[in-house]
Design a protein around this nucleic acid. Sequence first.
DNA 1: TCTACGTGTGGAACATTGTTCGTGTCAAGG
DNA 2: CCTTGACACGAACAATGTTCCACACGTAGA
Lengths: 239, 239
Amino acid sequence: MSVDPTQRRAVRHAQPAAVPARQARRKPPITVDRITDAALEIVATEGYDALTMRSVAGALGTGPASLYAHVVNKADLDELLIGRLCAGLVLPEPDPAAWREQILGVCAQIRDQYLRYPGISRAALAMGPTDLEIVRVSEGMLAILLAGGVAPQAAAWAIDALLLYVAAYCLEASIVRQRSAQEDAVVVHDREEVLRRFAALPAATFPHTTRHAAELTAGEGHDRFDFTLALMVDGLVHR
Amino acid sequence: MSVDPTQRRAVRHAQPAAVPARQARRKPPITVDRITDAALEIVATEGYDALTMRSVAGALGTGPASLYAHVVNKADLDELLIGRLCAGLVLPEPDPAAWREQILGVCAQIRDQYLRYPGISRAALAMGPTDLEIVRVSEGMLAILLAGGVAPQAAAWAIDALLLYVAAYCLEASIVRQRSAQEDAVVVHDREEVLRRFAALPAATFPHTTRHAAELTAGEGHDRFDFTLALMVDGLVHR
DNA sequence: TCTACGTGTGGAACATTGTTCGTGTCAAGG
DNA sequence: CCTTGACACGAACAATGTTCCACACGTAGA
């Protein structure tokens, strides 16, 4: 009802300084955490391809140049994102009797994190092995495999293989989903359509593909993921 | 020494038509094959990241717009490239007694093709399964696995897994090589440097990583590739 | 209190890349 | 000859990562 006294006095003295100060206080400073949060939100809702410096800056109500006071470049932002995802993984206390379930569980966690942020595993594929959050995960997986009696060398290489496969699996899954959304009739990922095309191939040229079109296109949920992980872990067991 | 008679006559009649016609004959028409050849050459020498419509057009002595009369877009070009690489693969006649070596051999061939064109496996990860060249390779691999007595469903899913892993492995290898060339001291891929960093980690936080830094960074040539492929194929054998 | 310095903010500009638009040329068919 | 379709290609546009530069603010020192 009544005009703010400070405002009134400012008007009296033709002094607008009080207003900008209040405005500055209302806008939180840009931080790496806020950038990372905003970026993850964009990837979660629109996919990794929608992640641009401009989209992040827009979400923070600023311009893209402002981000460079906090991140080196876009690749640095990628690393922050993957680091954040890795930080969210729960690494179990290794149990020799359940190491197989444990390693599969960690991989499933990674997969689920990546799939929550469609396309982000592309960033993971570009990261070196020395980021501390990645080392933490690697350490946890190594502990599980060693507890399970896997030889150190095999364990080390298995981690590499598992992480590569998980990232590739998620990348493809994200692309499949993206393509489905686009309803591109030329390149198909939709299972029924692939099945149709496989079955329609000339049997003389593609005898096995036509005969086993159903198996080639089979799989619900993460059947393929589980199958491959089992292959690898079984391979470790029999090593 | 003597001026070309056609030229002389053209000058006489103030008719320049003969000159452009000759020039047109010297420049071969742009075709999909020429585009694909040029693109592969660029990727082979400068890596996938250097592949732009402009770089291809430049190599062909034209402008980027000219390419669009022959390729739909850049993604289409990607498919042409992967199709070309797949067409170069030699698929063996399946031999039940040697199916394991055969499947490993096909995967090694794919790997080598991808590594000859650094970074190109990124395009492979984005492709759907219905491209005819990819179906041909898939058919060949399926024939090998079935000849080896692998159940159709397992064979079908194994192909998916193998192709994903090979692409991811090559993508990472390309990025490692690229990073090494940049001598980026912050993110490291160089093995000795990774070993140094792993060994220098706090042992209390990363006991297994520090103790097994040597194994984590071990591997010459394609040791990791061979290890993982063996894991998968062994897993198939014991299924 | 005033001044200087360092840090953060953010618009403008730049280089690069994929793609479309529009124009000109050529060849084939009527 | 005229028309049509295909190809070639420069110009222009939109989008994206990044740098440059000016300004504002906070802190430390005189």
